[in-house]
């Protein structure tokens, strides 16, 4: 308590004897309340300033994106410069492929690791894994990109959707593991004990009782992780690489929305710029829809799930 002490320090004896000047005290109090009001105002302004960029970015996305978002954007392939009517059909499919590959690899491993963390709370491996998962979560995505390039692209000699999926999966695993752990921990122990008492095997209890109770939260965690990797560009630069043509082979370079936005944004052509805005709008819409589903899926039941 910093503020009250200066008020008391100048004349402690007077205060004890009860003749502390009332006017001075009232003045001090007024000043203290003024400081309080000013600071309350300042943190309010901080909240407005912090949400302002989001509003501005979304405003520009809508303004620029809607203008260039037509049906052929979803159905057509990219066209060479000068030809209008190009789209990003291949990039949309490519992004979905990459998300799918990453999920197939990342979700089982992440959820499994999360179960281990929740069940062996204090063990040495659990503590190490928990800490490393948190640190991995904060590693730059470009590092994941060059890692995946080194192990999956360099030996093979060509870019592939595989490598991109693995880079994204490597980003998902630590995050999914931590959210799964948090959710599984909220399942009451009595539920597990009841299943065990009925003669259920340990593995069956964990999978069909504990994990099933926590399904909504685990799904939310998975969706949040998917929303996060859906917009990642850096890990894909040297793995999925991008592709101007139609490709659904996991062994070939594949187009992705974020990569396409990056290439088009840096190009000198107006037509490509507007395509980039449209792509950004589609990407953001995809991410927002996934995030909203995640939020609705767990409303009320596992309040901590989405954080």
């Amino acid at each position: 308590m910093t503020a009250p002490s200066p008020a008391a320090s100048p004349a402690p004896p007077a205060r004890w004897s009860g003749v502390y000047p009332a006017a001075a005290r009232a003045g001090k109090l007024r000043r203290r309340h003024a400081v309080n009001a000013v600071m309350a105002g300042l943190v309010g302004v901080a909240a407005i300033l912090a949400t302002l960029p989001l509003v501005i970015v979304l405003f520009y996305l809508l303004k620029q994106g809607v203008a260039s978002l037509q049906w052929h954007f979803f159905t057509n392939m990219p066209k060479p410069v000068g030809e209008s009517g190009g789209g990003m059909a291949n990039a949309i499919v490519g992004t979905l492929m990459l998300i799918g590959t990453a999920s197939v690899i990342g979700l089982p491993v992440g959820i499994g690791a999360g179960l281990y963390l929740a069940e062996h709370r204090g063990s040495r491996l659990a503590n190490t894994t928990r800490f490393l998962a948190d640190v991995l979560n904060g590693l730059p995505s470009i590092v994941m990109g060059i890692f995946a390039w080194q192990i999956l692209v360099r030996p093979v000699g060509h870019f592939s959707a595989w490598a991109g999926g693995v880079a994204l999966a490597a980003m998902m695993i630590p995050q999914v593991a931590r959210t799964t752990e948090e959710i599984v921990r909220t399942v009451p122990v009595s539920l597990r004990e009841a299943a065990l008492a009925l003669g259920y095997a340990h593995w069956r209890t964990s999978l069909t009782v504990v994990l099933r109770t926590a399904t909504a939260g685990v799904v939310t965690g998975a969706l949040v992780a998917i929303a996060r990797i859906a917009g990642e560009t850096a890990p894909l630069l040297f793995t999925a690489f991008g592709n101007q043509f139609w490709s659904t082979s996991l062994n070939q370079p594949v187009a992705a929305l974020p990569l396409q936005i990056y290439t088009y944004a840096l190009s000198p052509y107006d037509d490509w710029h507007s395509q980039a805005w449209a792509g950004a709008l589609v990407l953001i819409a995809l991410i927002l829809i996934i995030s909203l589903i995640a939020r609705v899926a767990t409303r009320g039941r596992f309040a901590t799930a989405s954080d």
Binding site: L54, V57, L61, A227, R228, A230, G231, E232, T233, A234, P258, I261, Y262, A265, A276, W277, A280, L283, I284, I287, L288, S291
Partner: peptide, 9 residues
């Protein structure tokens, strides 16, 4: 949640 590339754009 806004992707990095969208901020760049």
């Amino acid at each position: 949640a806004v992707p990095s590339v969208v901020y760049g754009l």
